[in-house]
Design a protein around this nucleic acid. Structure first.
Lengths: 213, 213, 213, 213
DNA sequence: CATGAATGAGCGTTCATTCAT
DNA sequence: CATGAATGAACGCTCATTCAT
């Protein structure tokens, strides 16, 4: 494809193609942006700071993104993809202790900043239709994930009646999100606390159970 | 010459004293700031926008606050006070359906932006010791409130063992906070969803109950 | 006008009249301005700083002066008067050592900031005709003072020919002014240096002496 | 496409490199700053005015200097360099009439604003250590220059005793500085006046001459 | 494609000034 | 007369963005 691979002068690490180079630039910028948006917020994050942290110059940014909003959108999309990619592993966790497993996973992860990204995204929505749509997609797909977990549920989990199903999904997401936010605010949230939270919601006493005929 | 003291019509609107005037200015600026901080974030909120919305000039702001950070701090403190003032009413809710009552209250309130304030406060904390302290006070006092509710609990609520008590408190706060955040993000959170959430956590099946002798 | 002076109830320190009060306010503001203008320059001096240092509020300033320029003008005029008032003492110095005496006087005075005032005045002149005029009056009157010293001169001083007379006056003023400025810049100027300077100019070897018939 | 390298006409104006461009921008900004600082003072000089006069936008300034103080420092340093570069010419002036020569040179120069720069520098010194140091270097190096002139002196100049040497140097600098300042204030200082001043100081009658064995 | 000098809008803040008290 | 809250112009500076190199 590129001229590099045609020269048979040994198997030495061939020079990267342009496309690869640029892909890496994008990736690094996105990674840097994740940190900076989380710590400074969207408005507070300067492009200089992002590019500096990524080891590039201001111009590199404008070669890859049209503006700051696009970067946030792209970053959010990437994060959504990452999350989706990890889900199967969690879903595959041993059945006997699904909740504890999930609680531990949610606790051990490095500081989650996704919540903060969502907050920024919500801020962009008034002036950016893209942001509005992406935000909706993000929340919907996350709710979908939770729904999938419920599907896999055996008798240890609730089997809510149809009218409560969506509500339950939302409640679970609220619990997870709230926990992440509190942790960001400095409140200690250990695995057991997470377990209390998840188990409680999944077995909420007020839940109308599905009537199995 | 002035009508204030000479008119004997009892409570006739006398001209405001300077202190009163200024208090109103402060209050209006704080109210305007609440909206603007919520919709634009701390960095994105310009003082011009805040003062305009409050109906004052830029300078009025600087007659009342030393800088933008102080305004956020003051606003957060005021909100904390407001919250504390409403608590007794909720605590006094009918015993039979304490949870449903709380769920409804949390749902019916006008859009809560306190979570967003907390996020902004968290951002200031690195450069502002005051923000750090205020944030800690806010989370602590809110946790304290939740704790109070548990104290009033009768048998309909959990009576957790000591080692779970604090965890339960945090879990409840996470649930409430998460729900507020999701609602802000556009996810519908109705009273029943809130009830699922609260009741679940308060009666978490994994909770080690206090052993009553 | 005020009731203070009409009541003959003993000779107790009577309350100051309004005019006296105001005169003191003016005087204190002017004194404070002298310091602040010297250390911060005209533009760098804020009215707040001046009034604070004088122990008054912002409003007191506007009750006494129409704007900042007027204060500088007034201050400069006052200083000119002060200077004129001290001159006789110097002129009266013993004849034998007039130069040494003057040198010592110029050295011992507290840090002179008059030069700095002149610089500020020069800056105002483009937009303020008053400043232009006052500046001219200040330099002229100071030159006049130097001229007076020359008049009193006996044989120990130069008796320049008419065409050098004005030049000599200017040269002396340049010497004094330059010395004051250098001292402000941190260069040490002791009494002997001043003497070298003054004596030199007054007995300049290139001076065309008046031909006495 | 571009004429730069393809035209073989030797010194044909090739397109400037970026470094050259920026150097010119810096130089023009510094030149403009010289005028504006002199006429408005440091505080009174707005960056807008400086950049406008230099024909650039506000931002060009911040691409080249970190802040206003740095510009003053840089300008002062440049001026010091310029001065040092002219000195040899003056020192090379004909021996017979060194003083007259110097007097004429000091008189004919375009309006000197160096004194004013020194005043501004003195103002910065409290908050800017750099300013303090630069000011000291400026006065020291100028004193050094004067000292060099004395070294070159033949019998037409004074050969002061050691203890008067430094004092003489300072006195001469005071004379020159004072003359420059008075001229700025509107007092006419012609070449003859300068000569009176310089010759006088250099042959001050109170000077203790070095004893030549 | 990446660089970084230059642009210019916009922001936080200061400050001279006004005016109701 | 003095006070100080409020005004609003101006300033120093930041930063998203452009574009010649």
């Amino acid at each position: 494809m590129s001229a590099d691979t045609t020269d048979g002068h040994g198997a030495g690490r061939r020079r990267r193609t342009r496309a690869e180079q640029q892909a890496e630039t994008r990736a690094r910028l996105i990674e840097a942006a994740a940190e900076v948006f989380a710590s400074h917020g969207f408005e507070g994050a300067s492009i200089d700071l992002i590019t500096e942290r990524a080891g590039y110059s201001r111009g590199a940014f404008y070669s890859n993104f049209s503006d700051k909003a696009e970067l946030l959108l792209e970053l959010s999309a990437v994060r959504m993809g990452d999350f989706a990619r990890v889900l199967p592993d969690i879903l595959a966790a041993s059945d006997e202790d699904r909740i504890g497993e999930a609680a531990r996973w949610l606790t051990d992860q490095p500081p989650h900043t996704e919540v903060l990204l969502l907050v920024e995204l919500a801020r962009l929505r008034d002036e950016h239709t893209d942001a509005q749509q992406l935000l909706a997609r993000l929340t919907d797909s996350t709710l979908g994930f939770v729904d999938d977990v419920l599907d896999e549920a055996d008798e240890t989990l609730a089997t809510p009646a149809a009218h409560d199903r969506l509500r339950l999904t939302r409640a679970i997401l609220a619990a997870i999100t709230g926990a992440q936010l509190l942790r960001h605010l400095g409140v200690e949230m250990d695995a057991r606390t997470m377990e209390l939270l998840l188990a409680g919601v999944l077995r909420s006493p007020v839940l109308t159970e599905e009537t199995v005929s």
